[in-house]
């Protein structure tokens, strides 16, 4: 240690100065403060954010899920429970029951990667706190969204390639660059769809 370092005071005062410098700089630059005044101001997470799940719908309003059990197989937390049924008219499989235990879920996005039908997406919704454990198990009623569900709140969804089969509803479109800026088409989702049962 040098002599001035030995003396305690010069370094202590120097440190004080540095802290004061930050304080005054921030006092005159309130807008540049790093603090996000949640909930008045919200941080915009990226378009890939892995939040709460949704099940997308076809144009006619039926759910795209065909109950193939791929998501529940790929899930490391085993938090997805599916029961398959058969549509008597179209002979097509569909989920009679589709439950996600949000408390078990680790939000790894493997279900989205595993889905061959473009049916399960994740949203940018992170405000999920619940006051009863039973409400954490969300079923079809909470998960299925209508076909016109806006793109804005959507998060992690298939990016391995463009979504051609189903059009761009919910997809990013071919060759369209990903956005990290705040989204303008920020139509809020229907709160009823988001509310736990």
């Amino acid at each position: 240690m040098t002599f001035s370092e030995r003396l305690y005071l010069p370094q202590v005062i120097g440190g004080m100065f540095r802290t004061l410098k930050h304080l005054t700089k921030n006092l005159f630059n309130i807008k540049g403060l790093p603090t996000i005044s949640y909930p008045e101001v919200k941080r915009v997470y990226s378009e890939r954010f892995r939040g709460r799940h949704i099940l997308t719908s076809r144009e006619d309003g039926t759910t795209r899920c065909v109950a193939c059990y791929m998501c529940s197989t790929a899930c490391p937390a085993e938090c997805i429970t599916i029961e398959a049924g058969e549509d008597q008219r179209t002979r097509e499989k569909f989920p009679v029951r589709y439950d996600i235990d949000l408390l078990r879920c680790v939000f790894c996005g493997y279900c989205v990667d595993a889905c061959p039908e473009d049916a399960i997406y994740m949203t940018r919704d992170y405000e999920m706190a619940i006051d009863t454990r039973a409400r954490a198990v969300v079923g079809l009623r909470d998960l299925v969204v209508p076909p016109n569900f806006p793109v804005g709140p959507m998060g992690w969804r298939p990016y391995y390639g463009a979504i051609e089969k189903h059009g761009t509803a919910g997809g990013t479109g071919i060759g369209q660059p990903l956005r990290t800026a705040p989204y303008e088409d920020d139509a809020p989702p229907n709160p009823d769809l988001y509310r736990g049962a």
Partner: peptide, 23 residues
């Protein structure tokens, strides 16, 4: 690697690989 999603939706072979890799 999982095949690209566009292929999974459109090609039988990729869909089979996709299923096989997940299962």
């Amino acid at each position: 690697a999982l095949p690209p999603k566009a292929k999974v939706y459109n090609e039988m072979e990729s869909l089979i690989y996709h299923f096989k890799l997940i299962m």
